[in-house]
Design a protein around this nucleic acid. Structure first.
Lengths: 216, 216
DNA sequence: CAAAAAACTAATAGAGCTATTAAATAGATT
DNA sequence: AATCTATTTAATAGCTCTATTAGTTTTTTG
């Protein structure tokens, strides 16, 4: 019990802090509040983590590692391009669903504390150089074959991230404005996951007619 | 000069506050800082706006009005559906380009201060009932004609907003990670505006082959 | 020009927050 | 049991922030 408890207090602070930071962001969460929720003295938070900032960075870095790690998974699949793409989109969506508040935290903290981007950049060093280039070369092949329309790799990535992320970012807003229940929102999420795949893959089809008819 | 200056001080506070709130959010901006930037006494901020919260809401409501107002513009256009859609997407993107920090402010403040959503909801009352339904009925007609694939109206709206918004939200992150200059970013924005239109419109084409080949 | 109103400021109350310190308690070790 | 180490706490220094108050300066107005 005691050995457990010793490990438990530091862990409890970490977990509570994570929850509160994700809920309300760094600025709106105080060490006092964290301690109150854990049920310990406020000084304990500083005993284990020295500063609020260090506590945050411990959590932030962990989340970045987790997030990036999954993308660095080697694709064991030897599938056609579009099927691989579909799996990637779905996997990305799944990660978000498991960490629905992560986009908020990332955008919010990286915007209000640009210096935190250094951790991110350092952590992401190899990310563009592997994931990006892998996707890039596969994409170029498909475009040359004419099986998908011309598109910049960065645009495709941005579009996938953007479509997948929006509902998690807008979740409180959508719920409030539509008066939707949690269950309804979950249903919407499921539909949205499929819709995003269709959206992306359909949007990659060669243009032809479109050029004449719609885009000036 | 004096008459000008009197009107000027309140105005200066409003403008400076707007800039700082957009830059760093509500929590990270103090009335002391606003006053310092304006070059006036900190009590002035409270003289004109009583509380920091009221000052924020004055700005927030103005921004919402502006943002919603543009969408409520009657579409004088009597164009084919897809061309109208293209114009809407482009107009939406333009508004964002003129207010690049607005998405950050909206997502950030509505998430950390859910009570602010009441202002938004009240302000948006007729928005869904006009814009949404107008798009909805036009969309259903096109779907029945078979000229575009089946899609929920809310999904289309979310996709447009999401694709248009992402770069403005991710701006600091993208700049930092890619080391891109401001000019390069502007170029990217221009490309992205076109890409989003192509993306959306292309993604609305009927499915057929896709169903068999790619989506299980 | 005198009185009234408006604009402005210095000072500060009062609250909350981070971080530290010094002391107390509990657990492990010899 | 005595000592040492790790954990925990109370107290508080020191800071920053919001908001108010009471008084001063400036502008307007009769």
């Amino acid at each position: 019990m005691t050995i457990n408890k010793e490990a438990t207090n530091e862990q409890a602070i970490l977990e509570t802090a994570e929850r509160l930071f994700l809920e309300k962001g760094f600025a709106m969460t105080s060490t006092t509040e964290i301690a109150k929720e854990v049920g310990c003295n406020q000084a304990m938070v500083h005993y284990y983590f020295r500063t609020k900032d260090k506590l945050f960075e411990a959590i932030f870095e962990k989340k970045i590692k987790m997030f990036v790690g999954i993308f660095l998974q080697t694709d064991e699949e030897n599938l056609p391009f579009l099927q691989k793409l579909q799996l990637k989109i779905e996997r990305h969506f799944d990660i978000l669903q498991e960490n629905p508040r992560l986009p908020f935290l990332f955008f919010n903290e990286l915007t209000t504390h640009p210096e935190r981007m250094d951790v991110l950049k350092q952590r992401l060093q190899e990310f563009p150089k592997t994931v990006f280039h892998r996707l890039n070369s596969e994409l170029k092949i498909e475009i040359e074959k004419g099986s998908i329309r011309p598109i910049e790799t960065i645009d495709l990535i941005l579009s996938i991230v953007s479509l997948n992320v929006i509902l998690f970012l807008a979740c409180p807003i959508v719920k409030k404005i539509t008066g939707m229940s949690d269950d309804d929102f979950q249903i919407m999420l499921q539909r949205r996951k499929k819709e995003n795949v269709i959206m992306i893959i359909n949007s990659l089809r060669p243009l032809e007619i479109l050029n004449e008819k719609c885009i000036k």
